[in-house]
Nucleic acid binder design. Structure first.
Lengths: 148, 148
DNA sequence: GGTATAATATTGACACGTCAACTATTGATA
DNA sequence: TATCAATAGTTGACGTGTCAATATTATACC
């Protein structure tokens, strides 16, 4: 019954989310928000489009999450002073602090998840997940093997 | 940047969902509904609580998905005639037919995902996912190793 | 039997994801 | 320059998940 890969993925994914629920609440994050702040913190100011592309999430979702984060003071939408008018998104000091604490919790969750895995198993696990993703990606983007 | 297991899981999970989007639409399923109908089809009539327990999903979500499925005629909420009053959920013939077609698409998605994986790799992959889930589960439920 | 407690299901409010429609701005071209 | 097409962002509607509050129904106990 529970041997499909879909169920296995579903369970692992949601178990992590469950595990991190209290931390999300404590830090004032919605479930999809830490990844955005984390990215912005590492990458520096960028456009919303870059976020929705990187995470392969609908721009609408990004827009709303940023509004929420902005209200909490974790992020600001800024206007590029140089030339263009498109707005850039930037992390605030409060956002940096929150995401720093988030990383600890997130790492802790990963440690729990991989408890009992050897280094070799971790590497293989990561590789399998990446391959699974790439397989879907190839199917989606590449409808033209174009043998010529 | 993208080497965290969370991102790897997130991407694999959502890539599958993306891939199956058109099939969901075609069969009139919401994204979380096929698993319920699939379960009901295999298991036979059962209570909602069993569904929310099995999938570890909030009963509220199950209730609403069933309402939606009932509207589409894939499922009925029945009253146990024997003795108890609690309502049982049951798949309809239309639901059976839809889920049968769903299984083909779902299997196809799994084939895509695992393309290039040997049998041994598939087995290991499944095992890793199950272990990851169990690690979270142990952390959650078992706060009492109780060495005595 | 009658009452207290527990379990079940539903509903409301919110967050995240989808798609689709709309606005505004950028950029390219006539 | 003026127009037209492409891109970016927002908003609306909907489905799925969370938690919290509310009936309603079972069960247990006196």
């Amino acid at each position: 019954m529970e041997r499909s890969f879909h169920m296995l993925l579903f369970r692992a994914f949601h178990a992590r989310r469950s595990y991190l629920g209290p931390s999300l609440k404590e830090l004032g994050f919605g479930s999809g928000q830490p990844k955005l702040v984390d990215y912005l913190d590492r990458r520096g100011p960028c456009r919303q489009r870059e976020l929705s592309d990187y995470f392969e999430v609908d721009p609408a979702a990004v827009s709303r999450m940023l509004s929420s984060l902005e209200k909490r003071g974790y992020v600001v939408r800024r206007v590029d002073g140089a030339r263009r008018r498109r707005d850039l998104v930037e992390v605030t000091p409060a956002g940096r602090e929150a995401v720093a604490r988030w990383r600890l919790r997130s790492q802790e969750a990963e440690d729990v998840m991989l408890r009992g895995f050897t280094e070799e198993e971790r590497a293989r696990f990561a590789q399998y997940l990446a391959r699974a993703y790439e397989n879907f990606r190839a199917e989606r983007g590449g409808d033209r093997p174009c043998t010529s």
